[in-house]
Design a protein around this nucleic acid. Structure first.
Lengths: 220, 220, 220, 220
DNA sequence: TATGAATGAGCATTCATTCAT
DNA sequence: GATGAATGAATGCTCATTCAT
């Protein structure tokens, strides 16, 4: 009756005997299954309305097992956010191959953001953070510290570089990097809320936005 | 222990003497007190985590009184959104005095948006809608229909007018009015989530953004 | 919006002006409407599950009006039982025209019981008393005192008369008048509970039962 | 404060040592405790006035435990009726040893009914069904189907046999088996409602009734 | 380690009763 | 007298958390 998490059971052969990846690996696998399940449920229902029962069922574990990996519902949510956000940030920030024009850099970033966040569960997670932020100051703090402030700083640097190189005219833009990111954020929220009312071609919108800023015209 | 609703007692002179405003007026007053209290609580805690007890306490009414005005918690939330959103939309859309440049129009709108939404409980309500949308399709539908689609259409018209008049260069912008609104939305969310981490001068940011689109420079 | 009780408004002409039956009559009328409505509701839902709101609505009065006539829900129920039971008992016990055979007397009684109780709201009330008895000792006491014990005594007298006159053979019957009444009671309950499963010709059943006791055969 | 269910602890030896009766047995035991407690409370107060809190307290379990066994209060009531009725019906219908006179058979049945139902919680349950029937059509249906219609059919068969064998004179009786059962039902209700006003020797009453039908005289 | 039965605090909702109009 | 808006105690049900197995 208990359903095993499938998408992550890429580990071993038989179910009861784990040759190589014993003990620790099994545990990590289970934990990951819980995190995945929790993300789905939290996104779909929000923190307060999500039942641990449903998470356990979806993860294919018993309810008590969750407490072997997380202190309680709150810390599960907080750790979940960290667990999912950190690798994405790492990937998005490590990327910039320091060659080419600023627009190339920004476009590369946008492209990655598109692939890694928009139209992804990760995008829904961003909306979830926006939703639960006020009730989870620690999550909002974490998100501001790890994502927002770092993102703003990075964008500002890029903008200043663009201004220095003459790619960007609008000098004030450096004071509000939010403007550079705003359409991407709006895309994330739009997909999560209004996709079924009217689909949005996020990629094209971002291109138009970059045209607005860099003045030129190019194809992705 | 019972607290009188203060901000809404615009009825008569003194608090203890309500000669004319009998029955109906008292009822409307009470209902408004409930709506106000509910908005505060829903914004602070989200739908699921909000207790009717707290709403009642904050509104200065008994728990049962809420049910004289709303069928249940869900419809209270839905009606609340309508009650608050409709007048704002009305005010924001009725405003444009059809004189002056397109930039003037947009700036007037931005100015009103700033005053009516950003830095206002209404702004928090927008974040709340983003947060609860997935669990309240009816709310998301309503918001899309009454606010988003109408807003997009209006913006598109303005953009096209701007293009026709030569105020806006970027022709593609008309396809993505979201870009025009994005910074305003980001400002709303920012104030709600990150104001305490780093305050945002929304007015100035919007000005910079308009400069980006209209190319010029002006002071509000 | 308030609906006037119709079936009882056989009183006066205009609604606001009661020529003869003013004041007191109006009050009595209202009270009767409440009693009627209450009986319907209590029978349909039982004491605990009946809402005063529904009674008021059905009676065409405001909720508060009920409290002008009855102390509270409990005493309303108790008085209701008295109000309805007493006249029936009176009618059923006053009837015996002291002529003819004992069987004639019993048959006359059965016939009246059939007309006055079985297939009547009064029958449902008996079932209601059976239902609520344990929670309303005062009602059970009243019913036992006014109906059961008097009924048993009366039946015993009739049986003894029948035995003395040679109409009834079974001498022990006088010790258990319940046997004489049992089918009538069963008819009451049957109609209330199982009529829709399988209708019962109570009159015929009672005739068969009397044949069993009196040994003869007659038509009603 | 927690009371262990006593009457049902027929499992192991001492109360503190339950070696074999693990899991399933414990669960069954708990469920039975809940059923017992529920029966007491429902009988004493009726469905609507019974509090789950009281059932839980009486059963010695937490409130939530009830919901591990029953979907809600309604289905608890319905299942309770089934759970209690079915075995009784089974026992009462399996009994007839096909020897002896019809009167012997009927007397055996009466004797069992006396022992199994009258003066038993089961008797009170019958009154409860009469009480709640109108609000629980499913219960009334079940009772009619499983008990009443089967009982009527069985009685009719016996009566016809009695007529065929010359033990019963009254031929019409076969059309109204209710007459045969009526005093037993009245005994059930009497004990439940009027026992404290005036005790009833049900056994003797049933004997007198059988004498009435079979005409003879015998001792149980 | 993993399980899931058991717990009981917590909350939405109902409804008898009151009382200002 | 009548009214019905307002009250708040009462109660069914949920669900995060614990712990014996």
């Amino acid at each position: 009756m208990t359903k095993r998490s499938t998408k992550l059971a890429a580990s071993s052969a038989a179910d009861g005997e784990a040759p190589a990846s014993s003990r620790a690996a099994r545990a990590a696998e289970r934990r990951q299954a819980i995190v995945d399940a929790a993300m789905e449920e939290f996104i779909a229902r929000g923190f307060a309305a999500t039942r641990l029962d449903d998470i356990a069922k979806r993860a294919g574990v018993a309810k008590g097992t969750i407490y072997l990996h997380f202190k309680d519902k709150e810390s599960m949510f907080e750790e979940l956010v960290r667990t999912v956000i950190v690798p994405v940030v790492t990937r998005l920030t490590t990327l910039p191959p320091p060659a080419g024009s600023v627009r190339d850099l920004v476009e590369a970033f946008a492209s990655n953001f598109l692939k890694e966040v928009i139209n992804t569960r990760r995008g829904d997670l961003v909306r979830l953070i926006v939703a639960e932020g006020p009730r989870f100051p620690s999550v909002a703090d974490f998100y501001y510290r790890e994502v927002v402030s770092r993102g703003m700083a990075g964008m500002r640097t890029l903008i200043e570089l663009g201004i220095a190189r003459g790619e960007i005219r609008q000098k004030d833009l450096a004071r509000y990097p939010q403007i550079l990111v705003a359409p991407a954020m709006i895309a994330v929220i739009w997909q999560s809320l209004f996709a079924r009312h009217s689909p949005l071609d996020a990629q094209e919108m971002l291109r138009v936005h970059l045209d607005l800023i860099f003045g030129e015209r190019r194809t992705t």
